[in-house]
Amino acid sequence: MADFNYLEEIARQIKTNRNYLNQIEEELKIINMKLHELPLKKPTEATFAKMIGTQYEDQQEQLEKSKANLEAKKEELTNAVKSDTSKFISEMTSPDLVIPLDPKPQFKNGNVMFQYKDATKFHNLFEFLSELLGLSAPLVVKDVLLSSTEVIIKVSNEYDAKQKFISSMNEIQKTLTIKKK
């Protein structure tokens, strides 16, 4: 059964892996630059080392190994991000998705507000969901504001709020289902 806590964890993992992937890509750029420069500098460096009586340290093999290791890690992380993204979309579009809202809404300024149970926050989930949908957080779908801390519905009675909430979640799920394909 899918729930927001699990989706929050998946989104956090995707964010962590993406950050690590960016670091690896930066390291690969540096190594590729060194590998490109090495053949150009090698004759001068080798001659200089010989002239001063030291051993020239050829870094080609070490750099090639580092590059291969980083490329393998990059491939692994890329696959993990793709897999986790697919899992996130599948769980988010599941008809069994459980959204931990407090069933007792608050009424404020003509709006109905639902808080998440135990004042839970879902920052990673909404950040990633917004990215997938191509929208900015907080999400506003059919007069329903969905944020990491609460849901605010622009109606004045609870029944209409529940209908609008269901409709907005269905809209999000439909959009994600289309993106999954």
Rank of each mutant, 00 (worst) to 15 (best):
K74M: 04
T175Y: 14
S148T: 09
A161F: 03
I89P: 08
N17D: 15
V98P: 06
T93V: 10
T93H: 13
L133W: 03
F114C: 13
S156W: 03
P43S: 07
L70K: 15
L139M: 04
Q62I: 07
E131K: 13
Q55L: 08
E61G: 10
K50R: 12
T177F: 09
N5T: 09
F107Y: 15
V112T: 11
S130K: 02
Q59S: 14
E64R: 09
Y116H: 05
L97V: 09
N19L: 02
T16Y: 10
Y56D: 01
Q115I: 00
L40H: 09
L101R: 05
M1T: 09
E9Q: 13
K29L: 03
K34W: 13
I52E: 05
N22D: 15
I166L: 02
K121R: 12
M33N: 11
F122W: 08
I152G: 04
V155K: 07
N79I: 08
L35D: 04
D96P: 01
I166S: 12
N170Q: 14
N79Q: 12
V98Q: 13
T78I: 00
Q23T: 11
N22A: 14
I14D: 05
I14Q: 01
F114W: 12
Y159P: 01
I153A: 08
A72F: 15
N17T: 13
L101P: 06
Q60P: 00
K142L: 10
M92Q: 12
S90D: 10
E8Y: 02
L133F: 06
L101T: 06
T149S: 08
Y159L: 02
L38N: 08
L132D: 07
F114D: 10
L21H: 15
L70N: 12
K65S: 13
N170G: 09
K74W: 06
